[in-house]
Amino acid sequence: MIAVLTKIGQSVLDPLARMGRANLFFLRLLGALSFLLQRPGLLVKQLHAVGVLSLPIILVSGLFVGMVLGLQGYANLVDFGATSSLGTVVALSLVRELGPVLTALLYAGRAGSALTAGIGLMKATEQLASMQMMAVDPFQRVLAPRFLAGFIAVPLLTGIFTAVGILGGYLVAVVQLGVDGGAFWAQMQAKVHFFTDVVNGVVLKSLVFGVVANWIALFEGYEAQPTSEGISLATTRTVVSTSLAVLGLDFLLTALMFGVW
């Protein structure tokens, strides 16, 4: 009986303690960011790892998502004779939702998992401990540059994804299906608002997702059991928790930004 109660208590306390550790981790991460003012070069290498290397998947996915939106939008709008609104449909879905969300999900799979595995491996091979023994703080030298690079990369990737997606929609709608190009752009510009759609969707959402995705990835890596199973488990957890967090937060942000109360 006592054992069961202990177990129940444990299953409540453990996630709570983990949450606490994650928050402390985040604070230390923020505290270590100022170190990058002295060593901006560290950022470049990480921007390459999380940004440049994520480009191919972002470009290809963005193009295909945009093309699918163009096709589906056309198939539905053609019944109402409203194919001239296709530009609006494609652009609004990408700018408000698909751009930031899909970019964050792809980022978690491509860069987030790599961050977790990298940090976990550094932990397992005692690289973090040896760094501490050399009086170098891993938060400053290893984690902060990765975090800031990811924080910068996600909005940029989101912008690229969205722009390429709209281009994909344009290719299908205008080039392939013969929708009027002028109407495509004009309707889009008339209905997509800079502050409510572009700033809220592409910029603000991606900034939030950037913080969350990189925070989770680095924390999972730092907390990983220093064994092969531990690292692979942590990598999986990064992708799963980031996806859930991004989708949940997206609902919250959408309700706040575009909510019709």
């Binding site: 091979t125 690289q127 401990a129 023994m133």
Partner: peptide, 13 residues
């Protein structure tokens, strides 16, 4: 620690 060196079992390079 700047005055300490440590050789880890794995090398930890």
């Amino acid at each position: 620690r700047k005055r300490m060196g440590m050789l880890f079992q794995s090398g930890a390079l």
